[in-house]
Nucleic acid binder design. Structure first.
Length: 197
DNA sequence: CTACCGATATTCT
DNA sequence: GAATATCGGTAGA
């Protein structure tokens, strides 16, 4: 089965298929250990919930491409666009275990501990060297590659997505149970404080 | 381990 | 102006 075929379907079914997959770029390869699913118009947590914008247009394109976006003023996060084309759904790559190019990853991550190299979506991009320049990049024909792998059915755990306050009840976060590279729990950001003076 | 806080661009109101 | 798919540093249990 081709990668494109594996990525077409309900995003909450596609997302766990990415666990265990190998993602490589810039001399670093990692095994995906944690993902989150984001659907289109029906999912308030998705960037595509309110329709296309310059930022999310890649989500509306063909599957097996990267959707990279800039967030919180300083971080890049990467998603795998899922199909079919025209249906905006994507899977956020939240964490991975570096399995090749560990020295390169450590350099990019300023000497972080091995298990922290890609423990979080922005850290994962940093470890791999992914930037906004990779937004829309193919995962089958370019320098960023994704190869699926089978994982035992019982190894997958699910729970609520991280960092969302709008759609907390969809348990669309998937990770490999017990893996030390899965990102730590963080509560949704507190309510805003008054403007500073 | 949990919790709080600041930095800071893009998007929406 | 306010919210946001975050992270690193610091504080406390």
């Amino acid at each position: 089965m081709s990668l494109e075929e594996a990525l077409v379907g309900p995003v909450e079914e596609v997302a766990p298929r990415l666990l265990g997959a190998l993602l490589s770029h810039g001399g670093v390869a990692l095994r995906v250990t944690e993902v989150e699913a984001y659907a289109g118009p029906t999912d308030p947590g998705s960037h595509a919930y309110r329709g296309p914008t310059p930022r999310n247009q890649v989500m509306f394109g063909p599957p097996a491409h990267l959707y990279c976006y800039f967030t919180y003023g300083m971080h890049v996060c990467a998603n795998v666009v899922c199909g079919p084309e025209g249906t905006p759904s994507a899977v956020l790559l939240r964490a991975g275990q570096v399995v090749a190019g560990v020295d390169d990853a450590r350099m990019r991550r300023d000497g972080a501990a091995d298990r922290d190299l890609a423990r979080g979506p922005a850290r994962l991009c940093s470890a791999l060297g992914l930037t906004l320049a990779h937004n829309g990049a193919s995962l089958t024909t370019g320098e960023v590659r994704l190869t699926l792998a089978d994982v035992a059915a019982g190894a997958v755990a699910t729970g609520p997505r991280v960092g969302l306050r709008g759609a907390p009840e969809r348990p669309w976060r998937f990770w490999l149970a017990g893996d030390p590279t899965v990102s730590a729990y963080r509560p949704a950001k507190r309510l805003s404080r008054p403007a500073k003076g």
